[in-house]
Design a binder for these strands. Structure first.
Lengths: 367, 367
DNA sequence: CTGAAAGCGCTTACAG
DNA sequence: CTGAAAGCGCTTACAG
């Protein structure tokens, strides 16, 4: 049943030319007489010839395929970023191999290996360990074109595209402060070791040490923005207001936020550091019977579709997700084509969407 | 800079064995002496040998890569389905090439071509034309393993995994009817030619002709369920209540729904046929200042994360999206491994999530 | 258990 | 403008 594949050899034979010539017209490079060209093409389409990219790739050393390592392709953030990448890739007639790391180093390593064995022309990765990723460094050293997306890795000087996390978080939190809030909760993932890292981080942030923030994961950066806004306003931080969820999970966030909201001295506003945290926080807010912004003001990092119509609308720091993917693809393709020169680190600016989820703290007279 | 790739030839040479032997231990098939094996493996890891899957694929005729054609990988539905596929694929050490069709035949054809040139071992596709897809039929006839997901193509007898659209829509709408609603709006995409197709469809559905519903796109099937529920209850259909949006777009849905809701004789309940329709409808409901379920009851096909906390929660017909992908992958891999026999058509059953968005129609006395 | 040799389907200098 | 030949990196009968 399996129809025998027609190869270039058969096309050449039937067209009465050499394989070399057939190859030249079918791959359209090099010279070929008009008549020859026509004949070969006619035979090829008649026979239903389909070039074998494996053979082509083996010999040219290019597969016209890139590999992508995302955290979780089903999350709205990565799904949109991937779409941006995909658009860039498809527009160039290239292909895209996709993997998930689930923010796990072991899986990221496995993915890197698999992708390299597949001879991808380049890699776009959202590294899960921003401090030390030997497998990525090795790949970069081996000369495989690579661009980092959403985050960077300390000591890895390669192209990257990320988002202004610190500045835009600082701005978002500042808006809450301007509205009069003094007890603002922050909900962030912060990894498993947050309880140890947090005191150090708070201490160093206190000095206004800003440099180290670039060497840290996005959720820490956004927390950094929160701290910076408070420092700008010369306000102390109450560590009890920092909810470190510890995992990428909406339901974990929901539990932690609920606990905070049931506290007697609960915050009058919340800043959520990513989409998962926002979903969890919103669920907790509803579960506690609180309404936004009357009982609680809210600013969320990353714009999810429901933020447009929940309550009176939720203020969001909207990341240019698709553009993130597009830009990464453009950088990668340039490198694949041989672009030299030092690493380019693009930083895209999110847009603040003001929808009305910020009100003065409850009990404040508006008069 | 580009580190020369180490091939099996070098490994063999340095280990003092033939390429054949090196190949046998590195690909681990065939016999190899314990000592030889050890030595070859040592040298391979020392040299950082990385098998070239192109060469391997060229000769074995298997790439251990599958191709996926989705509508839009950034939509929550496809994103989750893809994750299901991805899990199945990664668990077997295989890879996955992903493309978007944007529900466009031309792009689907291009994707099929590209994927086949990449010599994928099989294809999972969500076909955008359920009536006639010669490119898919050709691929199937050529013997490439393929499974259809979410929808089927008339006249293409191959494996498929879809969802019980008709039955579960019928059930969802029935719940609205039980609650006393008599004017229930339905919001569905239905394609560009809906205005012509609708009268015919209504007429044939009137006869209880059920067979043709399998040969129709998911949004038509869900409309079919709506009609069936009304037929069960012996109620007439008011065509004015059928909102055919015409495109896969939340904002288009929002506009159409808004128009319906601003009508003097507006419905007391809404049934939304997919996620995009639901987002649009919800935005329209909020824009009109209506509240769910007091002013309007609501049932949505496909469960989006916000439905858990918007208002008092929105009833949803939750599709097993990830399972859809997993099941498709399992079927595909079985075929790739050579499973024969007639096409299997899996139909997964959604779960109805009752959250409280159904109330009696406004003005009904509960007493 | 191991090796020499052919070959997967294509591209690419190199002659002509 | 066209063809003969080598070769990309591997696997697979086939002998031994």
């Amino acid at each position: 049943m399996k129809a025998a594949k027609v190869t270039i050899v058969e096309v050449a034979a039937k067209a009465g030319v050499s394989v070399a010539t057939a190859s030249r017209v079918l791959g359209n490079y090099g010279y070929a007489g008009a008549k020859t060209k026509e004949r070969v093409e006619a035979v090829a389409s008649e026979l239903g010839y389909r070039p074998n990219k494996l053979a082509r790739g083996l010999i040219t050393g290019q597969t016209r395929t890139i590999g992508v390592i995302a955290g979780d392709i089903s999350s709205p953030f990565y799904a949109a970023v991937l779409r941006g990448i995909s658009d860039g890739v498809e527009a160039r007639g290239m292909s895209m191999l996709i993997t998930n790391s689930d923010e796990t180093v072991a899986r990221e390593i496995a993915a890197t290996k698999l992708l390299r064995e597949n001879q991808v022309d380049g890699l776009i990765v959202s590294p899960c360990d921003v401090m030390d990723s030997p497998h990525l460094k090795e790949a970069a050293a081996a000369g495989i074109p690579m661009v980092l997306i959403d985050r960077k890795v300390t000591g890895l000087q390669i192209d990257s595209v990320s988002v202004e996390n610190i500045e835009s978080s600082r701005d978002g939190v500042a808006r809450l402060l301007w509205a009069g809030h003094r007890r603002i909760g922050v909900v962030a993932e912060l990894g498993r070791t947050a309880s140890q890292d947090l005191p150090k981080f708070l201490a160093s942030a206190g000095q206004g040490g800003r440099t180290n923030l670039n060497a840290v994961s996005t959720s820490w950066q956004r927390l950094g923005g929160y701290l910076a806004a408070h420092r700008d306003a010369q306000l102390e931080i109450d560590p009890a207001l920092i909810v470190h969820v510890g995992e990428h999970s909406a339901s974990a966030a929901q539990q932690s936020v609920r606990a905070l909201l049931e506290t007697p001295d609960r915050p009058t506003a919340l800043f959520c550091a990513d989409g998962l945290m926002s979903s969890g926080a919103m669920a907790a807010i509803v579960a506690c019977g609180l309404s936004v912004p009357d009982d609680l003001s809210l600013v969320c990092f990353d714009d999810l579709d429901w933020m447009a119509f929940v309550g009176s609308g939720i203020d969001a720091i909207a990341q240019p997700r698709r553009r993130l993917g597009k830009a990464a693809t453009a950088l990668l393709i340039a490198r694949i084509k041989g672009a030299k020169g030092r690493a380019r680190n693009l930083k895209l600016r999110p847009r603040y969407l003001s929808r009305g989820s910020i009100a003065p703290p409850p009990g404040t007279s508006t008069a």
